[in-house]
Each structure stands twice: as structure tokens, then as C-alpha cells.
Amino acid sequence: MTPAELSRTVLATVRRAVEADELSLAGPVPERVVVRRPPRPGCGDYATNVALQLAPLTGVAPLTVADVISRRLAAAPGIARVDVAAPGFLNITLQGDSHGALVDLVRAQGSRYGIGEHPVALAPPPTGEPRADAYAAALRRLHAATGVEPPARRPHPVRQTRDELLRTLGADATAWALLRPPAEDAPRTDPAAHLPQREANPLFLVRYAHARSRALLRGARDLGLAPGPAAGSPEPAEAELLGLIADFPRTVEAAARHGAPDRVARLLEHTADASLRCHDACPALPKGEEKPSAVHGARLALADAAGTVLANGLTLLGISAPRHL
């Protein structure tokens, strides 16, 4: 279950509670409900403040609203448990098979996961200012991916010309340098910040994590091992990575809605970090005399899904995702 699907489930639960007169609202049901990863471990897979949002419309305490919603939401398909936390948050734990279903969804959709095919208007003529043109191209890709037309943004310009940036950084590092900072921040265009082949360089980290996921699949084929279905509950490192994979479509939509491609870049950095930590904590390939098992197949499928998210996010930013580095 993705955050977008869970958001729709929570919203449908609120509507059913209103229809059943369990909640009385002095106004319409909100059109959107936000669900997010909880700020610390042990608080479920997702959290929502919908009860706090609705309390002023009901005239009762947020905890009372949360209790009403939690009872109904806990019975929804794909949800294992809903806990209420003060002052009115709902902490939602998904059923174990929801994680496997998410990985299956990402692997089935491949390059389409989080990226739709919506028509957009013809591209405006270039302005000649490298960052403004890079932003315009990225916002068009976000528009095409989500159908949401981003607001016009005025990014902080750079002093170099596009040709100068391409000569010193190359196309991929130029795109990253111009799109990674928020629009109002001045971008760093120093080659020392974007070209070193080490994990301290965020662009290299993201592309390395993608290439490593593809290397795992090649290594598995050599061992006669293939990605397989989920095997048991995810380990903490796997759960963290699964949450980021699930967040990708919502992040892409938010990036389009706010005209902020830097949101995609930040998610890619977090996903790359989590992917590499997951590889260390939960190896996808057997070691030494260890025999391949269903656990290895499940971990390979997760690595494949993570690589797909990294590739799709880089594509949205106009950056290549090589399989070999």
C-alpha cells in the first residue's frame, strides 16, 4: 500500500464515519488527507494528523475523533493495527503482505512507477539562463508525470553559461547542481562538489546505489537466484527502505504541486542511503557456503524495486542512471 493509497483509505474511512453519524462535521469532509512516515521508530509505518484536522469541525477533542476513526480504519484491508497517540495522531501499521505487494507493484510498473504519461503544452523557448531553463525542463517532466501543473518558479540564477557548466561538470552533474538546491538557494557549481567518485558526493551516492542494485541482479543470475516474494516481516533496515519506496509517488506529486524538483532529489538521497544500509544489514546474495533461500529472493526483489525508484527519480531530473559505474 502506497502513501497515496493509504491516504485514500483514511479519507474513505472518515467519510463512512460521517455517513454513519459517528462524526458530525460543521463543514465538508476534506478533499485530501496527509499521511507521512513517523518521526521515530516504533510508531507504526505511517502517521496522520487527520483527527487534529477534523476536531475543530466536530466540536469534540482530537483524541475522541481519533478513537472513532481508528476503530473503523483498523478493519480496512491491508491495515494490521492503528494506535492513537496524543494529542490525536493515528499511527498506522500495515499488514506484512502489504510490503510484498508494494515491491510487486514497483517491479511490475518498472519505469512507470510514480511516473505517468500526461499531455503537456509545448515547451517555452529557452531563456538562456541555465538554471531557469533546467527548472522549466524539470517542471515539464513533473507535469507529464503527475498531470499536476507546477506553479511558475523564479530560481536563483547562476553566473556561468550552459556551455561553461557542461564543460566543467558534464550534463548529469549540471542538472543535479541546478536542481538539487531549493529554487531560492544559490546552487554550488564547483566541480569538487559534484564530480568526485565517493559516497560523500550525493549525486555519486544515488547513481552508485542504483548501479549496485543492478549488479546484485547480475550476480544473482550467475548463482541461479531470482527475485521472489516477500518472506516474513521486514527487518528494520528493509522497512525503512520500503517506506521510502512507497513515498516516491507522493513525493513526485508534491514536487509538481510546489514546483520543487529538489524534493525528488532529496528523496533519492535518502533512498540511496537506505538501500546501501539495507544491503549491509540484509545481504541479498548468499555469503561463503550459505545456500540461496527464499529470504535472498525477497531481498533481491526489494533491491530491484529500490533501483527502479532511483532510476525513475533520476529520469525526472534529466539525469542518466547507468547500470555500471
Rank of each mutant, 00 (worst) to 15 (best):
H324I: 07
P125E: 04
L6Y: 08
T64H: 12
L6K: 10
A237R: 08
D133M: 09
F204Y: 14
R141S: 09
V158N: 13
L54F: 04
P87S: 04
T271S: 14
G78H: 03
D104R: 15
A303L: 11
L25M: 14
D185S: 05
V252L: 00
G147Y: 12
A274D: 13
Y113N: 07
R167P: 04
G116A: 06
A134Y: 11
G42C: 10
P38Y: 13
A321F: 03
L54Q: 02
E19R: 15
P62C: 07
R72H: 15
A200V: 08
V33A: 11
S24C: 13
R141K: 12
V68G: 02
A12C: 10
S111W: 11
P119M: 06
A75Y: 04
R214D: 05
A66M: 06
A121C: 15
S111A: 13
G96K: 04
R188K: 07
A137I: 08
P87N: 04
P56D: 00
A138E: 12
G96L: 03
L105M: 08
G307I: 04
L90W: 02
E164H: 09
R16E: 15
R81W: 01
P155Y: 01
A215T: 12
R221V: 07
V264S: 02
R250Q: 13
A255D: 05
R218Y: 03
P151C: 05
P155W: 00
P155E: 05
G243H: 03
T127M: 10
A226S: 11
G110A: 14
V65M: 08
G288A: 12
L242P: 02
D163I: 08
A321C: 10
L169E: 05
L223T: 02
E240M: 05
L317V: 01
A86I: 00
P202V: 01
E22H: 12
G88S: 00
D67T: 11
A237C: 05
L205M: 14
R277H: 10
E269N: 08
R8A: 15
A12D: 15
